[in-house]
Amino acid sequence: MIFRSQSSMAAPDLLFNLRNSFYLGAYQAAINNSEIPNLSPDDAIERDCLVYRSYIALGSHQLVINEIDSSAATPLQAVKLLALYLSGSENKESTIMNLKEWLADPTIGNIPTLRLVAGIIFMHEQDYTEALKHTYAGGTMELHALNVQIYLKMYRSDHAEKQLKIMQQIDEDHTLTQLANAWLNLAVGGSKIQEAYLIFQDFSEKYPMTGLILNGKAVCCMHMGNFEEAESLLLEALNKDAKDAETLSNLVVCCLHLNKPSTRYLRYEVEGFD
């Protein structure tokens, strides 16, 4: 399986490796390898967005808030809104108000990064209808992938499958297409779990192991009843990030099935997250 984002006839995609690192959860690698020469102004903005989103994923919300000032391009301002929203409950209401004002502005409301941030924030708010209002039209692979996630949250795997087919028509081998396929397979269950496992296994053979890949494999193992293998994968993920909420939650589930104490993981969840 060869991951590509453009046809072989197109110009080289200078941001391919950076995007791929971000999509697969290699956030520190994305930050460390972000010095890319000869970027166009638009690509430089996208690069900066990916770097700041990586800092957000690592929990460094305040760094993003401090570094993106009012003179930054709109996509970066949208990323700052995401950092503000995720940084604490006191910011959420005003952030959502600002977001809605920007989305209503005809000059910037259709910018893909702004629509993506809107989808992420409204999905966090569990307002899936509002999220889809801004993401449904697609336009980027990330927006299509987010649509898949939103529909799965709504238990509408039929609509998620339609979005996946759109992604497969655009680029069947794209990392986000493969991830969306795995998410859908996990939601459908049954024999599809093995297919999801093979996707994450393929990632683990081609790329450095990340918490996202390890959790994906572990969830597949849990669905298949292989809780000992799942625990091993999750402990490896815990070594990479001892405070990752998804890893800790999955470890609690594993411990319950293996009749092992889960107190330490529950304690981390309570103490480590607001």
Score class of each variant (00 low, 15 high):
residue 116 L to E: 07
residue 229 E to K: 13
residue 39 L to C: 03
residue 222 M to W: 04
residue 249 S to A: 15
residue 134 H to M: 04
residue 79 V to L: 00
residue 225 G to P: 07
residue 140 T to D: 01
residue 245 A to R: 15
residue 100 K to L: 10
residue 144 H to Q: 12
residue 164 L to P: 00
residue 127 D to Y: 01
residue 225 G to M: 05
residue 172 E to S: 13
residue 254 C to S: 11
residue 136 Y to I: 13
residue 213 I to S: 00
residue 161 E to P: 02
residue 225 G to F: 01
residue 123 M to F: 02
residue 274 D to M: 12
residue 17 N to A: 14
residue 76 L to P: 08
residue 157 S to E: 09
residue 118 A to F: 07
residue 98 N to K: 11
residue 215 N to M: 02
residue 154 M to C: 10
residue 228 E to W: 08
residue 217 K to E: 15
residue 40 S to R: 09
residue 28 Q to M: 05
residue 201 Q to C: 03
residue 220 C to P: 04
residue 155 Y to E: 12
residue 71 S to G: 06
residue 252 V to R: 02
residue 251 L to G: 11
residue 162 K to W: 11
residue 40 S to M: 05
residue 31 I to T: 12
residue 82 L to C: 08
residue 65 I to Q: 01
residue 18 L to A: 08
residue 126 Q to R: 15
residue 3 F to T: 10
residue 163 Q to A: 09
residue 222 M to R: 13
residue 29 A to H: 03
residue 92 K to A: 12
residue 1 M to I: 12
residue 24 L to G: 03
residue 50 L to Y: 02
residue 58 L to A: 01
residue 38 N to Y: 06
residue 50 L to H: 11
residue 169 Q to G: 12
residue 67 E to I: 11
residue 196 A to W: 08
residue 65 I to A: 02
residue 23 Y to V: 10
residue 121 I to Y: 05
residue 39 L to G: 10
residue 226 N to G: 00
residue 70 S to N: 09
residue 241 D to E: 09
residue 78 A to D: 00
residue 106 P to W: 04
residue 60 S to T: 01
residue 219 V to C: 09
residue 229 E to H: 07
residue 133 K to Y: 12
residue 257 H to F: 13
residue 131 A to C: 01
residue 262 S to I: 06
residue 231 E to C: 06
residue 42 D to R: 10
residue 60 S to R: 12
residue 227 F to H: 11
residue 236 E to T: 15
residue 44 A to G: 06
residue 72 A to K: 08
residue 196 A to K: 08
residue 146 L to E: 08
residue 87 S to R: 11
residue 139 G to T: 02
residue 183 W to D: 13
residue 220 C to I: 04
residue 262 S to C: 14
residue 54 S to L: 06
residue 161 E to S: 13
residue 78 A to E: 01
residue 223 H to T: 06
residue 49 C to M: 07
residue 115 R to H: 05
residue 164 L to V: 04
residue 254 C to T: 13
